[in-house]
């Protein structure tokens, strides 16, 4: 029974290599729920909170690198919010202020819940996940990282160390629907981001599939429909068609939080609104 608190990434990788079945503890906001309920009894824990490298970020010309240990409170404001506004909008909806102070981007990925609030934005921003172990580092697209509900491609001994996302020129929007004004699990969430440089629109969907989804047909349609050089306002018909195509990309289920039918409907409505907001 141990709690290891490595202070460097190298130490952490060694610890993970020698305890491949250890529970990795970041913000604790998912792991401790399982522990408190008795569903998980950790024997070895590697606490990642003391590793300064994981709490750093850098904003490059084309890509933003965010350390896995950066909390949602940090993402929700400041320069990260300016560089990735949709991610900041999503970060603001993660749990409560208490949760946002503790919960990390890496943790959200590690849990890999379909309702994870950051995931649809990461999908829209072409995120890649950096995994590090004693054997080195690999960087894989989010679509390869998320393999199913709460299932990821992280291998024993590997740590999620960073996330890289596109830095775009253009407006971004994120909408999350739940049945309370705050502190609510997502019923549907939709991210729509535009890039004027590449004249592209990208869509990420949360809680309407086993993994975060994109809407390629809707994205292609919007890229085509938008007059990138001149007046960027979108008309009602474009929004309607875009909504339809996004809705078709959703693969929702019925559960105690909502119905598949409503989720599909709301996906389209939110997509249209997001598009309307970014091209008013």
């Amino acid at each position: 029974m141990t709690v290891l608190s490595p202070r460097t990434l190298a130490e952490a990788c060694s610890a993970a290599a020698s305890n491949p079945n250890a529970d990795l503890l970041a913000g604790g906001t998912d792991l401790m729920v399982e522990v408190n309920s008795g569903h998980r009894r950790p024997t070895d824990v590697i606490s990642l909170g003391a590793i300064a490298e994981l709490r750093e970020w850098s904003i490059g010309e084309d890509r933003i690198t965010i350390g896995a240990g950066v909390t949602f409170a940090k993402i929700a404001s400041g320069e990260l919010a300016t560089a990735a506004p949709a991610l900041a909008m999503a970060a603001r909806t993660v749990g409560s202020p208490q949760i946002r102070n503790a919960a990390t981007l890496g943790g959200n990925l590690g849990t890999g819940s379909p309702a994870g609030d950051s995931l649809p934005v990461l999908a829209a921003l072409n995120a890649s996940v950096v995994l590090t172990s004693v054997h080195g580092q690999r960087e894989i697209p989010l679509s390869e990282f998320c393999v199913g509900p709460k299932r990821t491609d992280r291998q024993p001994g590997e740590l999620i160390t960073a996330v890289r996302i596109d830095r775009l020129n253009g407006p971004q929007e994120f909408c999350k629907l739940g049945t309370r004004q705050a502190m609510v699990i997502s019923v549907v969430s939709v991210a729509v981001v535009a890039d004027t440089s590449s004249t592209s629109v990208r869509v990420g969907l949360g809680a309407v599939g086993p993994v975060p989804l994109r809407a390629p047909e809707a994205e292609a349609f919007a890229a085509e429909a938008i007059n990138w050089s001149g007046q960027t306002s979108v008309d009602t018909e474009t929004c309607r068609r875009f909504a339809e195509l996004v809705r078709d990309a959703a693969r929702p289920i019925d559960d105690h939080r909502s119905t598949a039918e409503y989720r599909r409907h709301a996906t389209g409505v939110l997509a249209a609104r997001a598009l309307r907001r970014i091209f008013p």
């Binding site: 909008m89 603001r92 909806t93 929007e173 994120f174 909408c175 999350k176 629907l177 739940g178 309370r180 004004q181 705050a182 609510v184 969430s189 939110l270 609104r273 907001r277």
Partner: peptide
């Protein structure tokens, strides 16, 4: 926060 959907920004 003063609209339906709250911090989720669902509604104008």
């Amino acid at each position: 926060r003063l609209l339906p959907g709250g911090t989720g920004r669902t509604t104008d």
